[in-house]
Computed example of a mutant assay.
Amino acid sequence: MEASAAKAPSTLAKASRERRDIVSGEVMDEARLIRFVVGPEGQVVPDLARKLPGRGLWVAADRVAVETAAKKGLFARAAKAKVQASPGLADQVEMLLRRRLLSALGLARKAGDITSGFEKVSSAIQSGKAAWLIEARDGAADGRRKIMAMARKQQSAPRVFGLFTAEELGLALGGENVIHTAFLAGRAAERWAEDARRLEGFSPLLPEDWREEPIEAKREP
């Protein structure tokens, strides 16, 4: 009985993090899902932080899944009520995820988990401390190629994110013309990675016109 009792909290904790996708019916970890709630006027509202009041309506963090739920009335079916889901709901989720990631970068900078600049980022990569290499979308290709080639040589290469402009990164990190940034490994980077993986279901994390072979070709399960 002691062994069973010891396992129970772990089992309950795991179960509390799993939800059923209203589109596929699959039960999966919350980290792979987007929570929605019904707003006061009957509209479907994304709840990325999973804190809004009301019954949660869970959909896989995937553009096709969210669009399917909106088009086929699956939110209304799950809520057992008449609700309105905007045709642009998936675009709204993508925009909110981008904002959330930028905001988290600002908090991470204040906590000392972010470093920027070619030399500092290079040092973080070479020392194995970089969990993510965040490159400005509009940065010079030459500098990007050099730092990404450096990252590829590491035994545990950082993943690469390239959707934000230098201006967006500068505003988030309190600098100007921020091109190269490293998110240092740790719990903050792990939390950031969760939202980055959710965003990946709505938009590739690297621009299509980047010709380099992406470091993160192997997606995490």
Rank of each mutant, 00 (worst) to 15 (best):
K82I: 11
I114K: 08
G88M: 01
W192A: 09
P53M: 03
R50V: 09
A13W: 00
A60V: 00
A151I: 00
G112P: 07
G73Q: 07
E176S: 07
L48G: 07
R145W: 01
L89P: 08
M28Q: 13
D113H: 07
L33G: 12
R144L: 12
W58G: 06
R191M: 09
L205Y: 10
L173I: 00
K153I: 05
E176A: 05
G42S: 06
I134L: 04
A15C: 01
A157F: 00
A172F: 04
G42P: 10
A76L: 05
A8C: 03
V83T: 01
K218A: 14
P40H: 11
E208H: 08
G88I: 04
G56Y: 06
P207N: 12
L184T: 01
Q43W: 07
R19H: 14
K82R: 14
R35L: 11
E119Q: 09
R32Q: 14
G143S: 08
G128A: 06
A78H: 13
I114A: 04
G186D: 09
Q43G: 14
L163S: 05
A8N: 06
E26M: 10
G73V: 01
V66N: 03
V160L: 06
A104H: 10
K153P: 04
S123E: 15
K82W: 00
E119A: 12
G162C: 09
T181I: 03
M28I: 04
A182L: 05
G201K: 04
S24T: 13
K82H: 02
G143C: 05
E41R: 08
R63T: 06
A189H: 10
G39F: 02
S10N: 08
A196I: 11
R55T: 15
I134C: 00
T11K: 13
V27K: 13
P53E: 04
A136S: 12
K218P: 07
G175Q: 03
L169N: 06
A172G: 03
G128Y: 05
K7C: 07
F202Q: 04
Q43L: 03
E208P: 01
A6S: 10
R109T: 12
A149P: 04
L105W: 07
K129F: 03
G39K: 07
K71A: 15
T165M: 01
T165S: 12
G162W: 00
F75I: 09
P158N: 12
R17H: 15
G25C: 10
L105T: 15
A193L: 08
M1Y: 02
R100W: 12
A85N: 09
A185P: 01
K80G: 09
A65S: 15
D47S: 09
L97M: 08
R63E: 13
R55W: 02
M150L: 15
L89N: 08
A149E: 11
D47E: 10
E168Q: 15
I215D: 08
D138F: 00
A76K: 11
K153R: 13
A182K: 04
A111F: 02
S123A: 15
E176C: 00
P204K: 07
G170V: 02
Q126S: 13
R55L: 08
A13G: 02
P87N: 03
A151H: 01
S16K: 14
I22W: 11
I114V: 11
A61H: 04
R198C: 12
S10M: 05
A78C: 13
Q155E: 15
F36V: 02
S103P: 02
P46S: 07
A90D: 03
A104E: 13
G143I: 05
L184S: 05
G201V: 01
T68I: 05
